[in-house]
Design a protein around this nucleic acid. Sequence first.
DNA 1: ATATCCTATGTTATAAAATAACATCTGGGG
DNA 2: CCCCAGATGTTATTTTATAACATAGGATAT
Lengths: 157, 157
Amino acid sequence: MDKQSSNTLSRIMTYAEKECQARSLRLTPVRRRVLEMLVKHKHPVSAYQLLDELVEEGHKPAPPTIYRALDFLLEQGFIHRLATQNNFVACTHLGTLHMGVFLVCKRCKKTVELLGDSIRETLVDQADQNEFSLEEALVEVNCLCQPCQSQQERDQP
Amino acid sequence: MDKQSSNTLSRIMTYAEKECQARSLRLTPVRRRVLEMLVKHKHPVSAYQLLDELVEEGHKPAPPTIYRALDFLLEQGFIHRLATQNNFVACTHLGTLHMGVFLVCKRCKKTVELLGDSIRETLVDQADQNEFSLEEALVEVNCLCQPCQSQQERDQP
DNA sequence: ATATCCTATGTTATAAAATAACATCTGGGG
DNA sequence: CCCCAGATGTTATTTTATAACATAGGATAT
């Protein structure tokens, strides 16, 4: 891993630790390990992928252990869930109030998380008009990233 | 069923038939039946609920049959999939170019589909800035509808 | 210190959602 | 009529997620 992502990783872990302390919650070894793994991955990963990685490390947790850790991290806003992919991904806007808006390349799965402020405004508005109160939202956008667009053109000219 | 929804049902089925004809595709009995069931339901329903209903009717299809029908209906844009709920719902804006934007009451599951034009514009914009080309998007908004807000207040004052 | 309680984790089993792989049917074009 | 592509049937399996109950471990009060 390069210096940049290493910095990012440690900064995120420090942030998570402080947040947990502030909220009187425990960032236990399993939770910490799962968060670390998610931060290190470039792409969203599934619960069972995480499970397999832990098994390789010697730990042998069962599915509920992973799902409980994921639930915790979701609740604290440290990670997001991409429902169309059955995947989880570390939040890249920790500490910033935002809505989960994701561009996902449907070919290589490269994922970019946006802040989605203007979308949030629109949604609050439209929810209001329909007498719904917005609680939380998930926006998943199936895309092609630039390299995959080029590749696609080469594949099917 | 009241006259209004009956009209809606038959109008939708007629629309689907014409569209299939125009595209040289077959709205087979299974596909037709699944679409009918989805239109009749007020809330999004799961593939296995649909399966159970067909079993009750005497038909005894296996999961692949339902999923193939659902895939067909999704491709034709007659229905949408709500990924966070593992549910499917009939499109309420047939014939209108739109993006799937859903307000879903997290208590009673009442669901409203919006056209989402302004959100689409925003997303195209932001995808562009990130060198992604938008293909399709899913926006699911967890909400509380007005009656459920009131109920919630009564439950937990 | 230790009893107690709450939270987290371990463990086993199972439910729920989706798909793979292959067989069979069917209906429209030659 | 025959053929073939597309649709459905069938069986088995994979993938994702949770239920239910047992155990451990850390903070708090006494």
